[in-house]
């Protein structure tokens, strides 16, 4: 068991981070290169002011027409994404690992808060799952891959929660947790989780088109 843990938290972690960072850079650079080759006009319209106007509106809860129209989903979406990022980055156990391996450390969340955030992420995933199954307009455009990516996101939090509370066999869940986290990281550039990488670009372009050409709001 210890060897397995050593393996997943050692070489596999390297692979996961390499895939995540390398893959993300590759996807973004490949996209920009293709724009330059085939649709360079897009760069002509890019405007920092309108890109930021668009991005800032959409990353602020209730700042857009559609966020205001869907208050429950808006709250869930924002809470979900904030917890999804903040919890693993500022978790004491994670920062300790960075500290031990690289001698770098930063501010951490109290464990109790991180615990609640974990539950929130899992609950939000359930909300998205239920929404996908019950809302006709979502169900109609749902593919098996949508459940897979939801599972990929939920898994590290679910296993982390179980490992932290040591409710079942701790070592097994610890290994599963590390694995699940690695799968998620590696999946970001290569699945539709890549909206994390691409959404600032698509948002910026739409914001620029609406600001520069259409002179109206895209939010």
């Amino acid at each position: 068991m210890h060897d397995v843990y050593q393996f997943v938290s050692g070489p596999l972690a390297w692979v996961a981070f390499l895939l995540f960072i390398g893959g993300s850079l590759y996807r973004i650079i490949a996209m920009l290169a293709e724009v330059k080759e085939k649709e360079p006009f897009i760069f002509t319209y890019m405007s920092l002011k309108y890109s930021l106007r668009s991005i800032l509106h959409w990353i602020t809860p209730f700042a857009t027409y559609n966020w205001r129209r869907n208050p429950v989903l808006t709250v869930v979406t924002f809470v979900f994404h904030i917890c999804l990022f903040a919890c693993p980055i500022f978790l004491l156990a994670h920062v300790t690992l960075w500290d031990e391996a690289w001698d770098i450390r930063w501010w951490t969340l109290p464990d109790a808060v991180a615990d609640v955030m974990t539950v929130i992420v899992i609950a939000c995933c359930l909300f998205f799952l239920i929404r996908r199954v019950t809302q006709r307009e979502v169900k109609f455009v749902t593919y098996p891959s949508d459940y897979v990516i939801l599972g990929i996101v939920a898994a590290p939090f679910l296993t982390g929660f179980l490992a932290y509370h040591q409710w079942f066999t701790y070592p097994v869940f610890m290994i599963l947790h590390v694995l699940a986290g690695e799968v998620m990281l590696a999946a970001i550039p290569f699945t539709r989780l890549s909206h994390m990488l691409f959404s600032p670009f698509t948002r910026a372009y739409m914001g620029s088109e609406f600001g520069v050409i259409r002179k109206s709001k895209d939010y």
Binding site: M31, E37, V138, I149, R192, H195, F201
Partner: peptide, 25 residues
């Protein structure tokens, strides 16, 4: 088509939030 179409297709998370914008829908 190029990166634009590809990125749009790969970025869409099938959330359905566009639905109520459409008068047909």
């Amino acid at each position: 088509t190029g990166a634009r179409l590809k990125t749009y297709v790969n970025t869409c998370i099938h959330c359905g939030l566009c639905s109520e914008a459409c008068h047909y829908y």
